[in-house]
Amino acid sequence: MNKNEQGIQYMQEGKWEEAAKVFSEAIEENPNDAVSYINFGNVLTAVGEVAKAENFYNKAISIDENAGAAYYALGNLYYDNDKLMAAKDQFEKAIKVGLQNSDCYFMLGMTLQQLDQPKLAMPYIQRSVELNPEDNDARFQYALCLANAELYEELIKVLEEVLERDPKHADALYNLGVAYAGHLEDAEKALECFTKALEAQSDHMLAANGKKIMEQLLAEQ
């Protein structure tokens, strides 16, 4: 096991000081290895040393301008500190230099959503799901993009896929109910979805409101 592998193991165990020591030794032994700087930056990020972490990621990029992991790490750092335009730029650079990582596509999509650019976000979140079909969070976010674009047939299909993996996903159940109510005008199906959403999360106020509206609608028929 080399020093970078040893340091990553320490990080997984939450042993930040030990990880920092090993990565520091790796940098001393090979000061032109971008990976060691990225790993050290990840330790600094984990312990809240944001400014120092940024310096290490930038050092990694100065050594290797194709270090996709450094751009991705910077993107996360900026995203977590609400520097959304800077985050977007870094995620885009990571993808441009060849980082085919589902998390990177997902974070770029989420950043674009935060920047009120849902149409631009959609293909990146869709790509994230393609790269990692087991990521149900990404699949649900893709569904929200479809809802925003009013692509209801595809929306219903994707929400059902979310619920296949997590039958008690309250937000997916609520959004499916909205789709049934608004697009298919199926009040009974909508009521069923809102009811299941409340069974999964009793304080889901939007589902409670939807359930009340559907009950009133059905009572009037």
Rank of each mutant, 00 (worst) to 15 (best):
D135Y: 10
S102A: 14
H169S: 08
D166R: 14
E153W: 12
G75M: 15
A143W: 03
P123N: 00
L131V: 03
D171L: 12
V158S: 07
N55H: 12
L173H: 06
A172K: 13
Y174D: 09
Y78V: 13
E153P: 01
I95S: 01
F56G: 01
G68D: 06
L120K: 13
P123K: 10
E164P: 00
Y78C: 05
L173S: 10
G75L: 11
F91H: 07
L99N: 06
D116L: 08
E160I: 12
A46F: 13
V47P: 07
A60F: 11
E134L: 10
N58A: 02
F106V: 09
T111F: 10
A46P: 03
Q113I: 04
L112F: 03
K157Y: 08
C145T: 09
F140M: 00
L176A: 08
K88C: 09
A60E: 02
D171K: 12
P123A: 02
A149Y: 13
M122Y: 08
A53N: 02
A172V: 15
D64Y: 11
D171Y: 10
K52N: 05
Y57N: 08
A143N: 00
S102R: 01
Y142I: 00
R127Q: 10
L159S: 00
Q100S: 11
D64G: 11
M110A: 14
K96H: 04
V158Y: 04
Y72E: 12
H169C: 06
N136T: 07
R127K: 11
R165I: 09
A51F: 13
L159I: 12
A143D: 00
D103L: 15
E134C: 05
E153M: 04
L108I: 14
E160C: 08
L151I: 10
L173W: 08
L120F: 09
N175L: 00
Y105A: 11
D103T: 12
G98A: 07
E134Q: 07
G68S: 05
V129R: 02
Y152M: 13
M122A: 02
V162H: 07
N76Q: 09
L155E: 02
K93Q: 12
L151Y: 09
E153D: 15
Y124Q: 07
S62C: 10
L108N: 05
